[in-house]
Amino acid sequence: MLNVRYGNVAKNLFDQFSKLLLEEVLSPFGSVETSCEVSGEAQFVDVYFEPSPSPTLAARELGLSGKIAQTPCLLEPFRNQPTPAEVRSCLLKLYQVHGDYQRKARREQESIAEEALPQLWILASSASDALLSRFGATHNDEWGAGVYFLAIGLKVAIIAINQLPLTEETIWLRLLGRGQTQKQAVTEVIAFDTRDPRRSTILRLLANWKISIELTDRVEAEEELMMALSQAYLEWEQQTEQKGRAEGEQVGEARLIMRQLTRRLGQVAPEIEAQVRALSLPQLEALGEALLDFSGPNDLVDWLRLN
């Protein structure tokens, strides 16, 4: 239905970061396309999302982001408060996508429910009362602070990121904010358990954003942003080094255990060796003690089955 183009259409480094972050957050729920071209004159939706019938995560696990991912949608992040013209440009893209949906339904001689048409989410670092008033956007108690909807038939919402509550449910969107809002979100990501895969993934994205800014010497590199990104970079660098050391220790221990097993049991079958090499460091250490009592290959097979 939609032509997709990737590459150099991002307007700036924030666009690149926001697309990568939204793709990372939303991909467990469905299909994510970035820089998605719509019909008409050359225009691109920053992020276009379609939910999966069987997502790999429950929506509640990602809070507000997961709630957004319940229906097809367009997401348009803005580093600064969008101008009225920019809001109207987003509306134009939304209705061009709606037109694509409706033309496809006619070709296939089907009807399309209003609920099946995508929703537009304008993700603004801030949204003044004047801007919200201009478009008739009003607060919806069901969605919480910072979320404003235009008239229901327009299928448009504006999220004022700086107004979102400071909870884990909003953290992924607050990372797209500015100033203290973003800095607080970065601090919360750093505080995640180091074993949480989301921590390393988000820190990597933030670290790459910092590196890109430094390489291009962009004007957007305001001091507060660079302080937040530098903090994320140091944490990512430290975690990467620790992971590298741990992986090196695991590989070395696996080699040692395999030599001991070969001397004690003879040649070990390739599939069994693969299981041994995949063990964690604590498991390898436990196997190193247990193998002293092995009398044959079956003892190793039994140990692996039980551990």
Rank of each mutant, 00 (worst) to 15 (best):
P270R: 04
Q109A: 10
K93Q: 15
T262L: 01
R60M: 05
V251D: 09
Q275M: 06
D293C: 12
K93F: 03
Q43F: 11
L22N: 00
A191P: 02
Q70T: 14
K243W: 10
V38W: 14
M227W: 08
L57Q: 12
E220T: 03
I152A: 13
C73M: 14
L94P: 00
L205Y: 07
L64E: 07
E247F: 00
R106S: 08
A274W: 10
R107P: 00
S126Q: 07
L21Q: 03
Q119F: 05
E169P: 00
T138N: 11
V47M: 11
T216Y: 08
L287K: 02
I122M: 11
Y48C: 11
R60W: 12
Y6N: 09
G296M: 13
G136H: 06
A151G: 07
G179F: 04
V251Q: 03
W236M: 01
D302L: 03
E108D: 07
Q238K: 09
P118M: 04
L13V: 03
L203Q: 01
V219S: 07
P82E: 13
N3H: 14
L281T: 06
P53E: 15
V189Q: 01
A160Q: 01
L92D: 15
S31Y: 15
V32D: 03
L154E: 13
Q163F: 03
L117D: 04
E23G: 05
T34W: 06
I122K: 05
G136D: 02
V45M: 15
L94E: 12
D100C: 09
R255Q: 11
G63P: 10
E110Y: 10
A124Q: 01
G146C: 08
G244T: 01
S280L: 11
E237I: 01
A232I: 02
A127P: 04
P77G: 10
E76V: 10
P297R: 06
L57E: 15
Y148E: 02
E222V: 04
G248F: 04
L22I: 09
L215M: 09
A137H: 06
Q283K: 07
A116H: 10
T201I: 12
L92N: 15
D193V: 03
P28S: 04
T170N: 06
S27M: 13
L261I: 00
D15Q: 11
V268F: 01
V251C: 14
A59K: 14
L20I: 03
I161Q: 03
Q182S: 00
L205S: 02
L64I: 02
E23S: 08
Q81F: 07
F78V: 03
T167A: 09
P118R: 05
G63Y: 09
K11I: 12
S111F: 09
A10N: 13
S65P: 15
L74K: 10
L304I: 09
D293S: 09
S126P: 00
E41Y: 14
Y233N: 00
I122H: 04
Y101M: 09
C36V: 10
L20V: 05
K183R: 07
R178F: 00
L304N: 05
T138H: 12
Y95F: 10
T71C: 12
T262G: 03
I152E: 15
V219Y: 11
G63N: 13
S89F: 14
A207H: 09
L74Y: 07
E76I: 02
R88T: 11
W236C: 01
E76P: 14
V25P: 01
R195V: 04
S52I: 13
A232Y: 00
E24P: 05
Q275V: 05
S126M: 07
L284R: 05
R134K: 14
